[in-house]
Design a protein around this nucleic acid. Structure first.
Lengths: 339, 339
DNA sequence: AACGCTTGAGAAATCGTTTTTGCAAGATCA
DNA sequence: TGATCTTGCAAAAACGATTTCTCAAGCGTT
């Protein structure tokens, strides 16, 4: 009867035995540290390769106190924000062998606590905290964590390290684009006033609009876009020649509502959105000129920062506002009265 | 000079010392195993609590050979599928202390390989593989993995464990709903023919339509919905009285294109979508009756299955087709000629 | 009183690595 | 020719838990 081939995982011990050396020598050779003869080292590496040895990250981490693992805590379940950011984070970390635990808290504090505890127990090297809005509720526990924390998308408490899109810059891009279209009576239709992002964009709007018409706060939906236009028309005021919308959904609603009334975009009114959520911005008619927050890049930056921190490099606390990018499509006129 | 308070993590050793017992006794007491006096046990547990002891999961895993960690490999970066499923998986696992590594491969084989290796090195207990489509490319490595693999959303190779939405059931729900609206000339406008999901839904459509008009394959976009209607109208054939769309984006395009031509939904034609991607289905005018695949539930099921497997319980290989659910909104007539 | 059984707890081995220390043998130097 | 350095490697001690032995004390039985 044949002895069955052992499917047990190969350990360092197997390598050492096969190479006829001690554990320490094998370890040194594989890691390129310590003093080990070049030929011996080469032999050990070759053998490790041959028998398919892969070091057990658990054992390694236990020893080194670095798990090469980080946690990402988010409250955004349906994830148009989290996934691009997560992909960015992952992208810059995977080459360093760092993996990311993704934890969706679904805005449930109990769940958040559970996840957080699991992450700490698993000795993650750091946590990236991201939320659609952080300006209201602040999870107390996160403030006193024994490991580095980085905030992404939403700003953390004072003294923390945060990466957020530069809403003001985004708003400026939008306004400049509208100006370029020759718009002089620009309107701002945006989301709820209790969103920091909405307030920031609105403030920037007021700075850049010559005569600042009161921004219209509502919610983030297409429906609100419709309603805003309806209100505008029924008020009988002079219509604007440019509209800067707080997000793409509102913009889509606005454009559709205008078309329903025979007002054409961009012939009569130019429209700029915010988010570049492609499923919307590409499919409005006409396709939407909009502001892209570069979420993936934001994720990359956060990931890189985390990498530095876990390597012990000091990092300046504070909020980094990452520039936005204007994506030109067809909802903005090329020049005043040309289209 | 005061000796600084040690911020070193509390270990089992600290507990044992504080309780004046040995490591083994402390361990036994905390885990409720072995023989240890009730009072002693209580004291140990109390002390552990007091000094805030939390066992190091790394050390525990090293010993137990179970990391309480699974990997989720996906190629869907912008994630309307992955995140709900991931949330479902997480939801059923977090209570068991199991965390999920999310790896976005972005359809890059090198990246997939990298992530996979990292997961294996980290001794994950299993891998959940999910992709928007698996019917074409099959990652070879996944077939011979030394740990359990579960496929979610897309079906795995023969002999594997898969959880997928029951496309046929979904299609039936859609068709039944259209029948209920009194539709007799039903059309199917769907995505590319090389998507298995498209073929399955189309086949079911043909089964349920009395006179099966050739399904119209295109792509998954709103634009294709517009184009399909344009084609239909220019052909001059009799228009259908019901349209079953392969996804919500197509449905939205269809509805908008019909409205542009003065054809009203649901007065003249009833429309049903597929996906219940709310940002679309809620915002079509009228809001879209559509088929929900229950992705979160699918994730839950996959998570539970993984739990069973890692506990050593055998699990029947094969594909589980999870039922869909019809979400009624306003794009379907209530009865023939009533609306 | 001798034997066995149960209870309670400690000692030591183990998981798979890394890291520190020790120690021969050969090379270099005065 | 000794004294000191370097080289190459092995032995052993971590890392923080779990688990398997071992063993003493207390108890009941004959």
């Amino acid at each position: 009867m044949l002895k069955p081939i052992s499917h047990r995982k190969r350990t360092l011990r197997d390598v050492a035995k096969a190479a006829g050396v001690s554990l320490s020598t094998a370890s040194n050779a594989l890691n390129g540290v310590g003093r080990v003869n070049a030929e011996t080292s080469e032999r050990i590496n070759r053998i490790a390769q041959e028998i398919g040895f892969r070091p057990n990250a658990l054992a390694r981490s236990l020893q080194s106190k670095r798990s090469s693992t980080i946690g990402m805590l988010t409250n955004d379940t349906y994830g148009r924000l989290t996934l691009p950011m997560g992909a960015g984070v992952s992208e810059v970390l995977v080459d360093q062998g760092v993996s990311v635990f993704l934890c969706a808290t679904n805005n449930d504090p109990r769940l958040a606590q559970l996840h957080l505890q699991a992450l700490l127990d698993k000795q993650v090297d750091g946590i990236i905290f991201t939320a659609t809005r952080l300006d209201l509720e602040q999870p107390r526990e996160l403030l006193a964590l024994p490991i580095p924390v980085i905030y992404a998308f939403a700003e953390g408490p004072p003294g923390s390290v945060s990466f957020v899109p530069d809403d003001e810059h985004g708003a400026r891009l939008a306004m400049e684009r509208l100006r370029k279209s020759g718009c002089s009576r620009i309107l701002h239709i945006t989301g709820p006033k209790d969103y920091l992002a909405a307030r920031l964009r609105a403030a920037a709007f007021c700075n850049f609009a010559e005569a600042c018409r009161e921004p219209m706060f509502g919610d983030w939906s297409e429906e609100w876009g419709h309603e805003a236009i309806a209100r505008l028309v029924s008020d009988g005021d002079q219509l604007p020649d440019g509209i800067f919308c707080g997000n793409d959904e509102i913009a889509r609603g606005v454009i559709d509502a205008l078309r329903d009334r025979g007002i054409l975009v961009p012939r009569d009114i130019s429209v700029v959105g915010f988010d570049n959520w492609e499923v919307i911005s590409r499919q409005t008619r006409p396709p939407l000129t909009t502001v892209d927050m570069g979420l993936m890049e934001l994720g990359r930056q956060a990931g890189l920062a985390m990498l530095s921190i876990t390597r012990g490099e000091a990092i300046e606390p504070g909020t980094r506002r990452l520039p936005c990018r204007l994506v030109e499509r067809l909802s903005t006129a090329n020049k005043a009265n040309e289209y």
